[in-house]
Each structure stands twice: as C-alpha cells, then as structure tokens.
Amino acid sequence: MIEIMLTLALTLYGIAIAISVIRTIIGPSLPDRIVALDMIGVMLVSCIAIISVSYGTKAFLEVILILAILAFISTIAFSKYIERGTIIDSRRDD
C-alpha cells in the first residue's frame, strides 16, 4: 500500500516538474521563469524525500539540505537581477 502511494506521488511530481519545465521554456517574462525554476527546486527536494522514504535510507538527507540551499540562493540571485540589474554590488549604495 505504501509503495503504491509513494509511486503515485513520484509520478504526480514528475508530471508537475514537466509542466514547470514547459513554463520555464515558453515563459513570456523573466519572473515566470524564475518562479517555475523555484518550483522545480522545491519539487526536486520533495522527490528526493519520497525516494529516501521508499529506499528506507538516511543517506539522501544531505542532498535535500544542499539542494534546498542552492535553490534558495539561486532564487535570491535571480530576484536581485530583476530588481537591480546586477547580482553582486561592488559597494554599498544606501
């Protein structure tokens, strides 16, 4: 029973990631693509958690942490690129 549930969840997450990839490719504006990339990151974290439950191992928990951190930093970098035009400022301007 639990295996069927995990497989179904993985399948649905795969479909959702495919839809997000389509939005990333055809997204009309830059914020659409950024939100879709952030969604892909969150769903990949969920997929790794489900795979970790399915295999019954704790070896993937560091992967979850690192992937969540990288998704967070990349979303911040893209957002700052939209708002300021630069990613890393050379000096403080406020």
Binding site: I69, I73, A77, I88, D89, R91, R92
Partner: peptide, 21 residues
C-alpha cells in the same frame, strides 16, 4: 562538498551585501 557549501554561504553574503562589506 564542505568547501562548496561554505563557499555558497560566502556567495549568499556577497549577493545580499556587497563586495566592500
């Protein structure tokens, strides 16, 4: 991997603040 994660913390600080700080 530890060095990469530590570098990502520094990159986060560089993005949020600036190079001078």
């Amino acid at each position: 991997v530890g060095g990469l994660v530590l570098a990502s913390a520094l990159v986060l600080l560089l993005i949020v603040f600036d190079i001078e700080t």
